[in-house]
Amino acid sequence: MKNFELRRDRYEVFRQFDNPLLNISLTLELPDFRPFCKQRGLPPFHFFLYCVLSAIETVDNFMYRVHEDQVIKIDDFIGSFTVINEDNNLNFARFTRSTDLREFIARSVRAGQEAKASRALINTNADLTPRQARDNIYITCMPWFEMRAIEHPIFCHRSTDIPSLAWGKFSAPAGDTMTMPFSVQAHHGFVDGYHVHVLAQAIASRVAAVMAADAGA
């Protein structure tokens, strides 16, 4: 929490806002991981999800939450994401993350399949305490279009402390790099535009590192 104390005064200002949320949409540039995934039989979405979630852990600002009116720093978070079920309706997948790439992907794929098969809306927080529910990152992917911006549904702006990340359609293959529309929503008391930049860099670095480590294994 040492790093948070350096910005507590910023948090105290923004926490008084009716809407303290920062929303930034950008074009994310990173190594093209699709050939890598194809060669290894890995689903690109779940590979990228692994890289995103492990990158978030390296940026303290995305790990702060508010619990019982106190700022805390979480140590880990739940793997979760949105899916479209067989009725073409929204549903939610949840799973326990693994640091092992292939185990993570296996769990993520299985959770996605269960959510797709469920007609009932899955409440991924139903069995969690209020404190456990803070251990989350909201993830959604809309691969059908080049997303320009997104506004997430908010129950209460002032109490929203969990970051929401979204991305859209991948760019067409064009060499060693790829782009995608990427959006970050977070509490401005914790996150500035600079930290979104740092996260974008961390995601690209993580993709490169995972690919390099697997190729050398």
Rank of each mutant, 00 (worst) to 15 (best):
L28R: 11
R110F: 07
D60A: 14
P153F: 09
V83C: 07
N123L: 09
I122E: 06
E29K: 15
E151H: 12
V52G: 02
T82M: 04
I24S: 05
P43I: 07
S118R: 02
L22P: 07
C51H: 00
F17Y: 14
A55Q: 02
I105L: 00
T27F: 02
N85W: 08
P130V: 05
R119D: 10
R131D: 10
R94F: 03
N89S: 10
T124G: 00
V71F: 04
G112F: 01
N125Q: 12
C51Y: 00
C141A: 14
A149M: 09
T99Y: 10
F145C: 05
F47G: 10
C37F: 06
D60Y: 08
N19V: 08
A126I: 14
D76M: 06
F92V: 07
E103T: 11
Q113M: 12
C37A: 03
T82C: 04
F81R: 01
H67F: 15
G79C: 00
F62H: 05
C141S: 15
E151D: 13
I78M: 15
P44E: 10
D75R: 14
I78H: 15
F14N: 02
R94Q: 12
Y138A: 14
T140E: 02
I105Y: 02
T124E: 11
R119K: 14
N91W: 04
P130S: 04
L128C: 08
I56G: 01
V83S: 05
D87K: 14
R110S: 15
T96H: 12
S25M: 06
P43M: 07
R148V: 11
A126N: 08
R15T: 11
D127Q: 14
R131E: 15
A93P: 04
F145I: 10
P44T: 06
R94P: 00
F62I: 03
E146W: 09
Y64Q: 02
L42P: 08
F14H: 05
E57I: 04
F36Q: 01
T58K: 15
E151Q: 13
R65M: 05
W144V: 04
S25A: 15
E103L: 05
P20T: 10
T58Q: 15
C37W: 06
A111D: 02
P44W: 08
D60T: 08
I24H: 09
